[in-house]
Design a protein around this nucleic acid. Structure first.
Lengths: 221, 221
DNA sequence: TTATTATTTTAGATTTGTCTAAAAATATTT
DNA sequence: AAATATTTTTAGACAAATCTAAAATAATAA
């Protein structure tokens, strides 16, 4: 249906739009896709011709409903494959994204449906992000940053904010994964580091780490 | 490492070479890939520059060891994905090839190794063809055509010769699959049709069908 | 408000993989 | 062996997606 390049543009514009609102700038897209602004202008005009987005010169672009539908479908595929890689093939957290970037472009609705069923219709991916259903519908999760927890509160790890490779490796090393039960033992006011317990093991994490990990309150479950 | 087009050429040339011997003709490649001979000439020269094959003008091409290694790796991936689709996602026989054509191009050695392990290191794919190991090594199966069986002999279905879509649908309908036990009840000399028993069900098949189904003698197992 | 800076677009070139049409080489007939 | 047919290659063109360099527009500062 769409080329690889087109799909990557749609996905990127979708993400930028949900982060910063309508009217995504040419430079923002170029930076995310590691390409030149002039290339973005070309492609955006092409996608506008195909009614996947609206584009006003010098004013940025916004996806149409059709474009959003395509984008969420690609995101659905990406996240389902991530679940597959992690749960079925025992990949580690930081390894799944790159491979899912390729798998998300495989064209077969039947395949996606069967994969979905095979995985037991998961609703979130290994990063805690929701997996859209066949119609592109999904509800935002009630996740919050580990940094916002109160002392003695318990939370279940549901994802990460920035999936930096080094960070994901750190999590793997510390045995923090989706579903890990995290208890906040103490807060250090001086540098905002946290003393936490994961499973049976307790240790300290820096402020930066705590602001990059999403948890779901254990009470709310 | 290689582009999609390059990989498809390598795979096609490998298949043609194993069928008809060294020195694959430009037209043969063009026909298989549904492209023009002039396009083949261009690509073949490019692949020769990359030392993946040897090419002599007007004389055809043959894969180098490097080219064969690449080709068998793609075939390995294709066949592993076919097993996955059939065994894990419950696809039918005739549906797997087209999707595997896409999946075979996913780049990740780690992924292939883990998939291999996840599937239990299968040695043949759903068409009865051997799956090369990591080093490209595989041994030819001792399969033979159903048409060559003797009356009252038993065989296990191991694959098909031409995987025509209609034919695979026919097999699905008749409940003939990899591993099916087939007993030859009788041969009709007049039209060479066969009376066979599959599991508990017996019926007639035409000569054409019997010459397109591979079995492995049950004694040899 | 004018000058300067940053962003975005246009124009033209490049690469990959393809095509058509014509030329060259090889194979087959007569 | 010459004529004909087939196969293969070359030459030149094209679409997709990208780039560089220059021009146009918008935003910011003096």
């Amino acid at each position: 249906m769409f080329t690889l390049a087109e799909e990557n543009y749609l996905k990127t514009i979708y993400h930028l739009e949900s982060l910063f609102g309508e009217g995504v700038s040419t430079n923002a897209i170029a930076e995310k896709l590691e390409t030149k602004p002039s290339s973005v202008t070309d492609m955006v005009q092409k996608l506008a011709d195909k009614k996947l987005l609206t584009y006003i010169k010098y004013k940025g672009t916004s996806l149409t409903d059709l474009g959003k539908k395509e984008a969420t479908n690609i995101i659905r595929k990406h996240r389902l494959w991530e679940v597959f890689l992690l749960e079925k093939l025992q990949f580690q957290w930081h390894e799944v994204h790159e491979i899912a970037e390729q798998l998300e472009h495989i064209q077969s609705e039947e395949l996606v449906d069967r994969l979905d069923a095979f995985l037991g219709y998961p609703t979130t991916d290994p990063h805690g992000d929701p997996i859209p259903d066949k119609n592109g519908y999904f509800k935002a999760t009630d996740k919050k940053l580990l940094a916002s927890m109160k002392v003695s509160e318990q939370g279940i790890c549901v994802g990460v904010k920035d999936s930096d490779d080094e960070f994901l490796k750190y999590l793997d090393k510390k045995n923090i994964a989706i579903g890990s039960m995290i208890t906040l033992l103490a807060k250090e006011d001086f540098d905002h580091s946290l003393h936490i317990k994961v499973d049976d093991h307790s240790f300290f994490i820096t402020k930066a780490i705590s602001e990059n990990l999403f948890v779901k309150s254990h009470e709310s479950e």
